[in-house]
Design a protein around this nucleic acid. Structure first.
Length: 315
DNA sequence: AAGTTAGACAACCGCCTGTGT
DNA sequence: TACACAGGCGGTTGTCTAACT
């Protein structure tokens, strides 16, 4: 049994997160950044294990999350990437801005598998269903029969005008910086479309021995999840005074639930929030969680709040 | 209206790897 | 080298809702 698992057997809370817990975690990370996850629960005043906090941040609270339903482009890209990478969800997620590995994995298991079967394609092998003579059925853990696992980005249907450069999906450092059709200049990701940049060009953090350094980018396999962009003194527990997550001077950040529509009702479930739609109208949606029931436009609120807060343009 | 089922999503579990001592 | 620890990952389970009977 793992340590964290053992910990969860004790008094630590489990199950769904409450809005209050979200607020605590959110405020803590905005103030101090992500350092040592195992210390986050204590510092944030949460009765959760560090792993649980990490997952919650990665899959739910991160400001760069896209949420909403998958577009046709994203769907096609996932299928193409799965054909190449198999069930390497974290690698696949690197190529989809604002999407988490968990989200993609769930989408694949609940939806895309079925769609492929309906098209007569084996989701494990990406071959026709009746063409299974020699196909392994290890649910796509195999890689192409080649020594180098490269594929041309130029062949990517989502980057039709990109130069055909070689990209090694198994390498975390071979990351060509490109502005593909999926590019997002200020998106918080790194990957083959130059989607994330926590690097020094974005983060300007005071560096000293007791302060976590800025994320240097490039080599973190979890760059979509828990990159250590920080702006606080986690060791002492003191926030860097008047410094936001981008290292710029600002007033101390506080969690404002009104900027996060999924927090409008403390009961969270069965709540409804009135949101603007894409054409300036408004509609009410029941809220169960941030990701359920809400169209992309809903998340523009949170995103917009962050843009206001940090003067960053999300695309 | 109540019970059942299926789908979607959130969260947990256990294993693996990297790092520091 | 061995060990402990933290973090990452993929698989799996749990929970909730909507649709259906």
């Amino acid at each position: 049994m793992g340590r964290e698992a053992a910990a969860t057997r004790s008094k630590l809370r489990r199950g769904l997160w409450s809005p209050e817990e979200d607020e605590k975690l959110h405020n803590h990370i905005i103030r101090y950044g992500v350092g040592c996850w195992s210390s986050v629960p204590k510092l944030a005043g949460l009765e959760r294990c560090g792993k649980s906090c990490r997952l919650r941040w990665i899959n739910y609270l991160r400001p760069d999350l896209k949420r909403g339903s998958f577009s046709q482009q994203e769907e096609d890209l996932i299928i193409d990437l799965h054909k190449i990478l198999g069930n390497r969800w974290s690698q696949i997620a690197l190529q989809l801005p604002g999407r988490t590995d968990n989200e993609i994995k769930n989408f694949w298991n609940s939806c895309l598998k079925k769609k492929l079967r309906q098209r007569g394609i084996d989701p494990s092998t990406h071959k026709p269903l009746n063409d299974d003579a020699e196909a392994p059925h290890d649910d796509c853990k195999q890689l192409p029969d080649t020594d180098d696992h490269s594929f041309p980005i130029g062949s990517d249907p989502l980057a039709p005008h990109s130069p055909a450069v070689s990209f090694d999906p198994l390498s975390l450092t071979n990351v060509p910086a490109m502005e593909g059709s999926y590019g997002a200049a200020h998106s918080f990701r790194s990957g083959m479309y130059n989607l994330c940049d926590y690097s020094s060009s974005v983060v300007d953090v005071v560096s000293d021995a007791a302060t976590y350094s800025a994320y240097t980018g490039g080599g973190d396999s979890s760059s979509n999840s828990s990159s250590t962009w920080t702006c606080g003194n986690v060791v002492s527990g003191e926030p860097m005074p008047h410094m936001d997550m981008f290292g710029r001077d600002t007033e101390p950040y506080s969690f404002d639930p009104t900027k996060y529509p999924w927090h409008h009702d403390p009961q969270q479930q069965h709540a409804a929030v009135r949101i603007k739609d894409d054409v300036g109208g408004a509609a009410s949606f029941p809220i169960r969680s941030m990701s359920r029931d809400l169209p992309d436009s809903c998340f523009d609120l949170a995103r917009g709040a962050l843009e206001d807060e940090f003067s960053v343009d999300f695309l």
